[in-house]
Simulated scan of single mutants.
Amino acid sequence: MNDAGVVSMVGDNIFPLNADKDTEGDFIIYMRDEYSIDRSKMGIVSQKCNVYINAVSSSYNRSQDIAVLIFEALEGDFESPNMRIRLEDSTEDYADGKYIQVLLFSIQ
């Protein structure tokens, strides 16, 4: 993610699947949950991917601030490449002394 607001909050602390237990400061974890292709006799009609993005912080308010920045950076319709990203669901969690904002995005 190359959004200035997000980078200002977490720096390079953006990880696929998990972060090391000793990761300091705030961080983001992302994980693909689904990738599907719809086909017709003419070929591929559409592709869909669901991605969970977790904003993790020792501060509840800061975890929410990071989640808002992620939403603002990703949500929308894009021309190049032609895709649509939508927030489908969100929830929150607490583990290992960290507040976790869980965002589920669909990418089509």
Score class of each variant (00 low, 15 high):
M1C: 10
N2S: 07
D3N: 14
D3F: 05
D3M: 10
D3R: 10
V7I: 12
V7Y: 01
V7F: 04
M9W: 05
M9I: 00
V10C: 01
D12P: 05
D12R: 09
D12L: 11
N13P: 09
N13L: 04
N13F: 02
N13G: 04
F15Q: 03
P16T: 06
L17E: 11
N18D: 06
N18Y: 07
A19V: 03
K21D: 08
D22G: 05
T23K: 04
G25D: 04
D26C: 00
F27M: 01
I28S: 04
I29L: 07
I29F: 00
I29S: 03
R32W: 09
D33S: 09
E34K: 15
Y35V: 13
Y35F: 15
D38P: 00
R39F: 09
S40N: 14
M42V: 15
G43H: 05
G43E: 15
V45C: 02
V45S: 08
V45L: 12
S46K: 15
S46R: 15
S46N: 15
Q47M: 06
Q47V: 07
K48L: 14
K48E: 15
N50Y: 13
V51K: 00
Y52P: 01
Y52E: 14
I53F: 03
N54F: 14
N54L: 14
N54A: 14
A55N: 03
V56T: 02
S57G: 05
S57L: 03
S57N: 03
S57M: 05
S59A: 03
Y60W: 11
S63M: 02
Q64L: 10
Q64P: 01
Q64H: 09
D65K: 06
A67W: 01
V68Q: 02
L69V: 03
L69W: 05
F71K: 00
F71A: 06
E72R: 07
A73H: 05
L74S: 08
L74F: 10
G76C: 08
F78C: 03
F78H: 13
E79L: 15
E79Y: 14
S80I: 12
P81K: 10
P81S: 13
M83T: 06
I85L: 09
I85S: 08
I85G: 07
R86T: 15
R86C: 11
R86D: 13
L87W: 00
E88P: 11
D89G: 06
S90L: 06
E92F: 15
E92G: 09
D93C: 02
D93E: 11
D93L: 04
Y94V: 05
A95D: 10
D96I: 11
G97E: 00
G97A: 00
K98Q: 01
I100G: 08
I100E: 07
Q101E: 06
V102M: 13
V102T: 08
F105P: 05
S106D: 12
Q108S: 12
